[in-house]
Design a binder for these strands. Sequence first.
DNA 1: TTGTACGCGTTATCAG
DNA 2: CTGATAACGCGTACAA
Lengths: 340, 340
Amino acid sequence: MVTLKDVALKAGVSPSTVSRVVSGNGRVGQKCREHVQAVIKQMNYRPNTHARALACNRVEMIGLITPNVSTPFNGSIAIGVEEAAIELDYKTLITNTFRSPEAAINAIESFREQGCENIIIHTHSIDDVTLVKLAKEIKGLVVVNRFIAPIAQRCVWIDNVYGGRIAAEYLIAQGHKKLTIITDDKTARDPKDRILGIKQAVEDAGLHIPEERILFGINSIGNIEHGRKLARQLIEEKRDFTAVLAYNDMMAIGAINEFQDMGYKVPEDISVIGFDDLFICEVSRPHLSTIHYPIVEVAKFATQLSLALTNGDEGVIGKANMFMPSLVERSSVKNIKNNK
Amino acid sequence: MVTLKDVALKAGVSPSTVSRVVSGNGRVGQKCREHVQAVIKQMNYRPNTHARALACNRVEMIGLITPNVSTPFNGSIAIGVEEAAIELDYKTLITNTFRSPEAAINAIESFREQGCENIIIHTHSIDDVTLVKLAKEIKGLVVVNRFIAPIAQRCVWIDNVYGGRIAAEYLIAQGHKKLTIITDDKTARDPKDRILGIKQAVEDAGLHIPEERILFGINSIGNIEHGRKLARQLIEEKRDFTAVLAYNDMMAIGAINEFQDMGYKVPEDISVIGFDDLFICEVSRPHLSTIHYPIVEVAKFATQLSLALTNGDEGVIGKANMFMPSLVERSSVKNIKNNK
DNA sequence: TTGTACGCGTTATCAG
DNA sequence: CTGATAACGCGTACAA
């Protein structure tokens, strides 16, 4: 392994000079710099990450904390992070917390101790208060897919209220008057925001959603199974509705499956709309209409923001951190305007 | 940040003693050890990764090289790796190569330079010869989901021939006589092995698959789109068949979608079987019958093997590295034994 | 068993 | 603009 000293020796200069040309800090004579650069290339020298980290207590690495990369949504977050990281030659360190708060806190501690200040938080295992405190201590901490008012400038999220609104508006425009919602944990913010948007649209149209048509999950993770369960409940308890707004695509697809298994046709008997726009929308039958969530872009921006925060690049800072979702029409919603 | 020296000071011993109790190398008096451990816990000391890496030129980190974690198969590999890594307190560094050979080679180089000898290769961007060479130089290099004879003991893979065989046997048992195969790149090993297994089963049954009923992809990645394309070709060119063996679930689902869009019913008109057993099998209509690939287990084992290789634990070494796939019956294959 | 001293590869502070 | 020199935190021969 070729070191800085080796280069210095061969180039006939001091180690410090080599360090200067490598890092770009400090002035070096034009001629001298070029010579050193040539030697570096010739010897194929590459700086040692650990020595550098030890010396300046910082490291070119970005840590992502996520529940489980193997799910499509989380996987896309990871991709966005790495795409942005790679552009600046940062490495990506991923920790899956599997919904364990301790694992999440541990991971953050571990990152910090290694001098990694660029941390992307994508988990709900850590509460707002803790995160606000951590954000004060860690320059490059950024929260993705979540909004925490006191550190809004450190969050990158989407307008869930708007997302809920356009979903409902679409259903209403297709003639649906009796909407129902199957969603995630009652206490979580995203479900609440989306419901808020839905209610706004519903009221604007002079309609109403009774509480009994809003089904929550308890300690759920908005997955297929959860969607199935609530769909079954909808049918068994004979709720009166023509369309379902699911919290996300996974739940929507679970619901569609359950409806179909119970003998209902989608969208002929029941219309369903999802949220996220994962690749499975094209897999399901019928193809799932949904609200597009620009996941990769969001994650990419979050990463750029984190990097800007620690490196003092003002470019990204101050830009809007809220992205807008958009409607994607496929075939899980039926136009019933002229029926009934 | 609390260092080894701080602990030594507080405990009234020398730094080397603390180092010894932390690392476990070298004898330390029972009483002394306990005292030091108490102080460590009390001060919440945690060793500095970089200093350690610098001093001994090795690091407790495992690097995964994968095309793109955001796809279900690759994501599961990542999960398996991290699950195994976390058990030994190793960190997981993930690099997505997006099918670029340079990116893959770069990542390996980068890992090595950082003293990371534990590298899990999950990509076909690097050829066999290069990998064999690298395996000689890097103690902890392990190849997952791929078999390379000269370094078989460093590969963890599944029996693709057997997988192909049981898939075909199942179809044949269901009365299918005219099978067709839609698969991946002709030059890749996995498709070839699976085809081999299929042919074995077919011949054992006294049947035959003409070459025109085996459709390959070119430079494809076995995704949904690819499945759609070959399915369409099957129909348009009026190939004669009752069942389709897809290279993997993604292709199978693409094919099912295409068949359905063209007005065919699955499995009534055409039966389809996949490979991998991803979560989308339960999503598709009909639910996809497939060959189960123990992805997480394979990745986990590969990681344990890598760790054993570098740490000299002989436990895992020598065990069989080949896992066996198994049949999962769902509803995409019709029994036509008593028809026609 | 325990402590001392040096080196790992780099950066940063200070002279020159 | 350049070169010594001292850290950074830890492991490890070597000495005690």
